[in-house]
Design a binder for these strands. Structure first.
Length: 113
DNA sequence: CGATTGACGTACG
DNA sequence: TCGTACGCCAATC
């Protein structure tokens, strides 16, 4: 697969861009989908440099295992992530996505691996 | 060029 | 059951 030629970061970008509107995913789920379950940290780090990347990566749809907005500090504004999520119909309270389990998007399942 | 850090998650004690 | 340690790979100091 020529898809394997791209860097781990680019693979992360592609998967995150597949997250539909109104859905969210987690770093671990994406890492596992890429075959690197222990590289969950890299997923978040990849998103850290995903700002100048195009097409834009919906990094706000990627949360941690508990549905916490752990990366909101890395956005242009601390509340940008929450605003974007709420704009997609989610409910955020105390940096926690109450609709996380409900709107969770698992690439392993959705992409029918 | 070598050591440290970082949007996490799992394993072990 | 709760707390601590490690792994992953790239970027930064």
């Amino acid at each position: 697969m020529s898809n394997n030629d791209i860097s781990f970061f680019e693979q992360v970008y592609q998967v995150v861009r597949l997250i539909p509107f109104g859905r969210v995913s987690s770093y671990g789920a994406i890492a596992r989908y890429l075959g690197a379950a222990k590289s969950s940290r890299m997923v978040g780090y990849a998103l850290n440099g995903s700002h100048p990347i195009q097409p834009p990566v919906p990094a706000h749809r990627v949360l941690n295992r508990m549905g916490l907005l752990t990366g909101k500090q890395h956005f242009e504004a601390p509340n940008a992530m929450q605003i974007l999520l709420e704009a997609e119909g989610h409910i955020v309270e105390d940096n926690q996505l109450l609709t996380f389990k409900e709107k969770f998007w698992d690439p392993m399942v959705e992409l029918s691996l």
